[in-house]
Amino acid sequence: MSEYILTQADYLLRIFLAALCGLVIGYEREARLKMAGIRTHTIIAMAASLMVVVSKYGFFDVIKIDGVSVDASRIAASVVTGIGFLGAGIILNHKRSISGVTTSAGIWATLGIGMAIGAGMWALGIGSTLLLLGIQFFFHKNWRILNGSNAGKILLHMKKGDDTRERIVSALTNMNIQVISTHLNIFDNSFIEVSLSVVFPKDFSAENTMTLMANYPEIASIDL
């Protein structure tokens, strides 16, 4: 009985650790205001670990029966296939602007981390989590320097009917900030959320960001 409890505790610990790794990855995504955050990544990692544990260890009782053979990888393979619908749902295409690809790829990687930990590959899962976080942090800060671009987003919250958007677009133009696309969401017929995809000039700095937000309180966030 004690051996059974220890075995089940080991399985549960794997699932818990996978959920923790997913939580850390999701926290980094949510801190950057991405579509899939803490809950999504945590649930994906936990569920992947659970399914691999079931796939690998859940059929020991029937293996003992003569003539019964079980493929321990079949559920794991189905999990990898099934995550595609979730990743595809995150990717958005609006006016030739595609967003959500990195988050979708991160979800795929989180799935793999959960599967690795569920299979008992603790070091591989934890190491992959640290590697994924390192990639996200490094390229978020340095990619625009490496490829010479400075694209970003500006998110506005304003009352419907105001000319705030036009004034802000004019101000951005005066600051040599190029507006690529605009996306509007209307809430309760009174408030509007405007997402602007822009290209900042190379000399645009954090100080310019604070000045712009101070002059226009309607700007909810700026993602450089």
Results as ranks from 00 to 15, higher is better:
67 G>H: 06
222 I>Y: 09
123 A>G: 05
92 L>D: 05
212 L>M: 08
96 R>L: 03
105 A>F: 05
54 V>P: 00
148 G>I: 11
3 E>V: 13
43 I>N: 00
120 G>N: 10
33 L>K: 13
164 T>W: 07
134 G>C: 06
22 G>I: 11
149 S>K: 12
106 G>K: 04
45 A>Q: 08
110 T>I: 09
56 K>W: 01
72 A>S: 06
150 N>C: 11
24 V>H: 02
76 A>T: 12
190 S>L: 13
57 Y>H: 07
2 S>W: 14
20 L>W: 08
80 V>N: 10
184 L>T: 14
147 N>R: 03
204 F>Q: 06
157 H>E: 07
34 K>R: 15
122 W>C: 01
116 A>T: 12
203 D>C: 10
77 A>D: 09
216 Y>T: 04
126 I>Y: 04
126 I>S: 05
9 A>E: 15
147 N>K: 04
174 N>V: 14
73 S>H: 08
136 Q>S: 00
125 G>C: 06
1 M>S: 12
85 F>R: 03
162 D>F: 13
9 A>R: 08
9 A>M: 15
150 N>H: 14
182 T>C: 11
2 S>C: 07
139 F>W: 08
85 F>L: 07
135 I>T: 11
99 S>N: 11
193 E>C: 08
115 M>S: 10
201 P>E: 02
147 N>C: 11
49 S>Y: 05
192 I>N: 10
193 E>H: 12
133 L>W: 06
125 G>S: 11
91 I>L: 03
99 S>R: 09
205 S>A: 11
